[in-house]
Design a protein around this nucleic acid. Sequence first.
RNA 1: GCUCCAUUAGCAUAGUGGCUAGUGCAUCCGACUUUCUAUCGGAAGACAAGGGUUCGAUUCCCUUAUGGAGUACCA
Length: 501
Amino acid sequence: MASTVRVRFAPSPTGPLHIGGVRTALFNYLFAKKHGGTCILRIEDTDQNRYVPGAEDYIMNALEWCGIAFDESPKAEGNFGPYRQSERKALYRECIEQLLASGNAYYAFDTSEKLDFHRKDHEKKGKTFIYNWHNRSKLDNSLSMDTNTLNERLNSGEPYVVRFLSPENRTLQLTDIIRGTIEIDSNTLDDKVLFKSDGMPTYHLANIVDDHLMEISHVIRGEEWLPSLALHQLLYDAFGWDAPQFAHLPLIMKPVGKGKLSKRDGEKGGFPVFPLSWNDTTGYREAGYFPEAVVNFLALLGWNPGTEQELFGMDDLIEAFDLDRVNRSGARFDPDKTKWYNHQYLQQRSTESLVEDFLPILNEHEVPAELLGSDRVATIVDMVKERATFVSDFWGLSHFFFKRPETFDAKAVKKQWKTDTPDIMNRLLDVLKETDAFSSDTVEGIVKAWIKDNDFSFGQVLAPLRLVIVGAMQGPHVFDILAIIGKKETLARIDRAITTL
RNA sequence: GCUCCAUUAGCAUAGUGGCUAGUGCAUCCGACUUUCUAUCGGAAGACAAGGGUUCGAUUCCCUUAUGGAGUACCA
């Protein structure tokens, strides 16, 4: 059993994949790997109107960036191809004929306008129009006409769709791995369109046919499909096929307010909702997130290990993942938590790789090459990374190592720069000039001793010193900064501040 | 409206028919650093409501409320 697991992620190329989709792909991937199974990518491009060029590549690139790999996909076909539904049209045609022949489906000629009218009309009366047992005989379909008329209309080239004939008076027992048994009264179901007038199948038909033909064992998809489960089960029955097992994942909800997470929430809240940038919207990658962080927080959206562990690499996730531990209720998306994850992963990164990522930023700021020795940059990175969430935070946390402060924080100046400060700084300058060894410890020892000897308070000296060196009241230990920028630069900054402040 | 799903602190969640309901993020306070958005320590904060079942329910059942999804020739 364990070796026959075959799952699939089946996105529709109608735009960039949002993180909910990535999460679905991730859960499929984890489940497959956990059970030594196969993970398939199938492109569901049956809607010609909504097809967006580039979306398919985007999906593959995004998933690849996350480290989600497929054993079979349009790029690497296995024995069940093609892996794009638009290339499988003939298959659906055959299958719909089978359903028509067995009496499980029928032709319908009702126009969209007519159906819209019925829906609006019912709505006005506070009712819902459902195309099914209680009105299908009154509508324009093959159930309400004789064979001759049907053939005539079919041959005349009049557009038609094929609908599923939902059974009457049956209580369906559906099973979902996450939710258990669900009972549905078949009379509440409608006769869904299976085959569109443009010659393409709808999602429902194509999905069932492909999952069967591709020998999918477990369908793991979003909760928005739960209401369709009855139809899908009925379709498997109509074909006489064994249905796979189903698991419906909880939706990802907005950080605040009602409803599911949308692109707009990201714009409002200032966080990405797409893995990679798409047109003018920024993706997680471009915002500076590490793929490990994205995967980690996505995994914990709707699933938890039942332990207090929060940090999981992909291998840990494969090990720990289990469909039984997926939640039933919607998972609220928390942008703060995603930052927390990135902070965690940034701390775990090697200094070398952080330096490598930081160097281009340093160059953008036109830092002179002699300040960019890899040891020097590494020391600085180690010093500031603790308070960084993204590599892009480094510059703000360390610019004073590379450039003299151009401005001084006005509030800090007001608070720290007293009338006697220039005099104290001048005297400090003299002390510093005398010292040749400029290591952090030595300078700290000398300066502190000098402060005591002169009956100054630490705040009187150290606070303005930080201000002068950094430009604001922030940054690592002052004496560490001094040691790195060196004696000459230290003296120059103090000197300049005395004259300009 | 109808169908289905859900409901533990501000948020995400763990957990149990009976010991002070655990954890993380956020919040507040303290310490450190005579800087801090970091780190460390501490605090506050929850079983939606009402009925049952039971010796006993946050845990099982029902009702209500609230939230979510679907209700397309979209997926």
